[in-house]
Structure formats: structure tokens, C-alpha cells
Design a protein around this nucleic acid. Structure first.
Lengths: 174, 174
DNA sequence: GATAACTTATTCGAGCCCTGATAATATGGT
DNA sequence: ACCATATTATCAGGGCTCGAATAAGTTATC
């Protein structure tokens, strides 16, 4: 059972503190030095987020889905008949980006576009039965990751952590 | 002084709780409902991270830089003569991704590639004087965002938050 | 020394995500 | 009714990021 041989993004080859050949500072592992608890918050945030994003994408690859697609599908299910423009606002993505994702979901039959009965321009996004089943499968695959994120924080800190994430999202929402 | 008219990713048009026309659930603003403190952690993390990433990219656009480029440049400065492979491990990005970023930095003269004196394959990345000046300017532009991230959390909470970000990065580093 | 296994750098293809721009439709003020 | 403004959808272009694959050099093993 060898792990799939793919190009890995991280992996910390744990060099010593200085390179014996060059004497230059060696590379710290994740969690050490600037990569640890005294680094830039922007850096720690990106590092954590992209690690999770990658884990989600890999979990969803088995369904031929990506995290953005899965996330959008979940929202279309929750806010049925939403327009792409509203979906963009909801996800804090641009309409152009949503357009790409929606096209992918439409192409695989997870959603359909219905012209609005009264508004001549809006296309309403509606999840299909196939889309519902797919969404359920995606959720099952991502649930362990969501659980782990929760398990990693103490119950006492969870509200503050959520508050912080929401606060900074609101600060830069625009 | 009208704000530059660009396509905005978010902006919460604050619809009522249900759409009067369709009766369907309306779109919550950032910080409300699923988008608030009771949503998925994966979602909150992405929302916060991408908002910050966007703010950083916009701050750096004035220098013709992106956050990944600025971040890579900072690391090349800190770990001078690092190889692209090590830089990939350090940033938890793939060598392919680093290759793109390094090429951009090289093209604008912020860094140069030097073949390793003993190893026939490694290309060592060295920051130029121009690169140092650029890095300093980038840091000045991103500093306010970093400050704000820190200001948004209480001192008692900060260690736990950093710990959490590092922990989940380590969980999925691979 | 020969061979296998690993490492480094790099190309290609694809998806995400932005900025910029445009056409079509709605809306609001006069 | 008219016109300016806003909204919706969408195209084009470019940067980031991955997975897959390859060539070239290094290291380990026999």
C-alpha cells in the first residue's frame, strides 16, 4: 500500500539548523520558527487555509469535484433558485468566478439554469436530483475534515476563533 | 473621489429575510447565519483567508506584485541562496507553483538564479539589491493588514489562535 | 562500477480567481 | 417617455495552484 506518487506541496525534510556545506540558515519545519507561533498572521492564515483547501480538494477529487464546486452546490441547495449574482455576493467571489464554477456544475448536470419568470435577465440556479445526491456524497467526504477543524480547538476558544474569522472577513469584504 | 469602479467580490446587498416575490430564503450578509459564527469552519476559514489574500493583493498591486510573490521574496531574503525545491517545502506549495512565482521575480530582477558550486542541478535563489528595496516597500504596504489581524484578537486569545492555525496546517501538510 | 531510487528543475493541462470590459435588461428621476 | 444609473450575465486576459510527466543529476545498494 504505497501512497499515490503525486507531487507533494509540503513535507519538511527536516534539515539541521544550519547547512553544513554553506553555513546558511536551514529550512524550518512546519510549526517551527517563522512558520510557527511567532510568524506573520497573514502567513499562518494562508498556510492553514491552503492546507485545508488542498485536503478538501483531494477528498472531493474522488467525486470529480473541487471544494469551490462543492461549496457552491451546497449553497444552491440551501438558497434554491438563487441567481449567480447573489451567489457571488454570498461567497464573496466575483460574478466572473462564479460563472466558471456554475458552468462546471451545469455541465455535469448538478444544477440547471431557469430564466426568471418576471425578470428578463436573471438566470435562477436550481439544484437537480442528481445534484442533491452528489452534494450528499461530497458532504460525507468533507465531513471528517470539518470535524478535525473543530476537534483541534477547545470549546472555550471556539466562539472567539469563529468571531475572529468572521470579523476579519467582514473587515475586508469588498 | 469615487472609489475605483472594479468588479467587487462581496458587498452584501442586505436582502430581507425572505424574498417577497418568491418566498424563498434571502441572502444573509457576511457575519449572519451560516456565514456567521455557526457556519462550517472550512467555510469561515476560506472566507477569512480569501478576503485577506485579496486585500494583500490589492495593496501590493501598486508595486506590481502579488502576495505570493511578496511572500516568496521575503523568504528568499530570509533564507538566502535557498533552492526552489526547498522554497516549495517551506511555503507548502508545489515545485510547479514556486517555479511560476520565481520566474516572475526573476523576470523583474528581484532575484537571480545561481547554479550551486558543487551540486550540478540545484539553482540557488539570491535576492538582488533591487529585490531588497522592493521587499521593503512591499512590507510597508502589507504591514497595516498584518496589524489589523493582530488588533482583531485579544492578547489572551492570540496564542490559542496561532496554535490552532499551525496545528491544522501541520495536520494537512503533505 | 552498474543499477535503482530519489531529487531538482521544468513543461503541459486544467481549475480557480482576479481585473477589465461589454451587451442586455431594469430601475429611478425628471 | 427619456435618459442616466445599476444590475446581470458573460468574454478575454493573466496570475496562482494543482496533478501528471519528463529530463538531468545525485545518492544508495549491490
Amino acid at each position: 500500500m504505497v501512497k499515490p506518487r503525486r507531487t507533494k506541496p509540503a513535507q519538511a525534510s527536516l534539515a539541521a539548523n544550519t547547512d553544513p556545506r554553506t553555513g546558511l540558515p536551514a529550512i524550518p519545519a512546519v510549526g517551527e520558527a517563522k512558520r510557527g507561533t511567532d510568524g506573520y498572521m497573514t502567513y499562518l492564515l494562508r498556510q492553514a487555509s491552503s492546507a485545508v483547501r488542498l485536503a478538501l480538494d483531494r477528498a472531493l477529487a474522488a467525486e470529480g469535484m473541487t471544494y469551490p464546486q462543492s461549496s457552491a452546490l451546497t449553497m444552491i441547495r440551501a438558497y434554491d433558485a438563487i441567481s449567480a449574482a447573489d451567489l457571488a455576493r454570498l461567497t464573496m467571489l466575483t460574478p466572473q468566478t462564479i460563472n466558471v464554477i456554475v458552468k462546471a456544475l451545469e455541465a455535469r448536470g448538478a444544477i440547471v439554469k431557469h430564466p426568471d419568470p418576471v425578470h428578463g435577465r436573471i438566470l435562477r440556479l436550481v439544484i437537480t436530483e442528481e445534484g442533491r445526491a452528489l452534494q450528499k456524497r461530497c458532504r460525507a467526504r468533507t465531513a471528517p475534515i470539518e470535524s478535525n477543524l473543530r476537534a483541534r480547538m477547545s470549546k472555550t476558544f471556539e466562539p472567539a476563533l469563529r468571531r475572529w474569522l468572521v470579523d476579519i472577513a467582514m473587515d475586508y469584504a469588498n
